[in-house]
Simulated assay, not measured.
Amino acid sequence: MSEEETKYFSKDFEWEEVREEVEKNLSLRYHLVPFESSTPLSSPSSSLANQSEAWKSFHNRHSSGRFFKERRYLLKEFPELLSFHEYSKVLEVGCGNGSTVLPILRGKQSSAVYACDCSKEALDRAKEMIDAADGILIKDRFHPFVCDFSRNGFPKWLVCDSCRRDSLQKHRDFLSDGNKSEGMELNKLSSNKDHCCIGVLDFVTLIFTLSSLPFQKMPTALEECISVLKPGGLLLFRDYGLYDMTMLRFPLEQRVGFREYMRSDGTLSSFFCLDTVRDLFVGAGFIVLELEYCCIKSVNRQNGKQMRRVWVHGKFQKPL
């Protein structure tokens, strides 16, 4: 990656500049104060059900797919997807219309991508987009399935209980015995003798997905993600960062938690600082490999105004 490309995709400006401006602006102070409410956002069952329905409605309204653009920056930000072993298995969580899946399938002709979303309509659009893609045949390597992983977990045909237990035991052995088990063959964990599942995965991608969950459900969701990764597998993460332009545009009445906001269509959006992301992933058992703000300037083509976007970029590894 050239120096110019690196600058474009990560550091058009410094996050501290935005932080200083926001914290000095009294009109934006309501974003910073602790949130107090007698009616918390999420009861264990109803809020998640409402979120699933809200996102299904969202994808129905944007069924043409024009709302989303193919994330062509993905392989530059996460080159591991290209450099890993030949027949890698990737799980894209919350794939929407396939804007993340398509560049992965195009980038490596031997990778298999499993992709889930709570919306069947979104998956239908993703399949249509994959089927219509130019170039090499990729549809046979694309495996979409409906799943609300934050409520029900991943299906057992993806990773069965036996593979999960083996992977978890390997993780516990590492924690208790240090590096003694490092030399064992990791392929044994995905040998899948009964062929009841595809086995543990090389990669999980969470691209603008975690922020759509109520904060109190995020730890469980990340524990589910680490349980389907093989030891040494990577979770690749990008999501909304603290003081992103979108956050600052939310009015006070749409604030439903600390750095949590409800859009008018009922969908949820959270905005992360680095410390929060680190605590969530370490708490789930991950090792932090990379964690930083991506600060990118873009231009609104309609009015010519510059927009400052802040995203969080992260790479996290399941311990060997």
Rank of each mutant, 00 (worst) to 15 (best):
R71D: 06
F84C: 13
W55C: 07
N60H: 13
E92H: 01
E70H: 02
L81V: 00
E70S: 07
S110F: 14
G65L: 08
L102W: 01
F78M: 04
H59C: 03
K56N: 11
S83I: 07
L82E: 06
L74D: 02
S111V: 15
S63W: 13
Y73R: 08
P79H: 03
R66S: 12
N60M: 08
K56F: 03
G98Y: 07
Q51I: 15
S88H: 07
K69W: 12
F78L: 01
H85N: 01
V90T: 03
V93R: 01
G94A: 02
S43F: 00
R66G: 06
S46C: 12
L81A: 03
L74E: 00
S42M: 03
L41G: 08
P40G: 06
F68M: 07
S47N: 01
L74T: 01
T100Y: 10
R72K: 11
P44R: 09
P103R: 04
L91G: 04
N97T: 15
L102T: 09
H62K: 12
F58D: 00
S38F: 01
S38N: 09
K76L: 00
F68P: 01
R61P: 06
H85F: 06
S88C: 08
K89V: 10
L74N: 00
S52F: 10
L105Q: 10
P40K: 03
S111I: 15
Q51C: 10
F58G: 04
S52I: 15
L41D: 03
E92N: 12
Y87R: 11
Y87Q: 11
K89G: 02
E80R: 00
E70R: 09
Q51S: 13
R72S: 10
N97S: 13
S99V: 12
L48M: 15
Q109L: 11
N97H: 14
K69R: 14
S37W: 08
F58E: 02
N50W: 10
P44S: 12
L82P: 01
P44V: 12
K89R: 11
S64Y: 04
Y87S: 07
L75M: 00
V93H: 00
S83Q: 09
A54C: 06
S57N: 15
S52E: 15
S99Y: 08
S42H: 04
F78N: 03
E80N: 07
P79G: 00
E80Q: 13
W55A: 02
S43G: 00
G107D: 01
H59Y: 15
E77P: 05
S46Y: 10
S83A: 07
S52D: 14
K69C: 03
K56D: 04
F84S: 14
E86R: 12
G96N: 03
S47A: 09
S111Y: 04
L41N: 02
A49G: 13
E53V: 12
Q51L: 14
G96D: 02
N97R: 10
L82V: 09
G94W: 08
S52V: 15
L75H: 08
W55N: 05
S83L: 08
S38L: 05
G94H: 04
R72I: 09
K56Y: 03
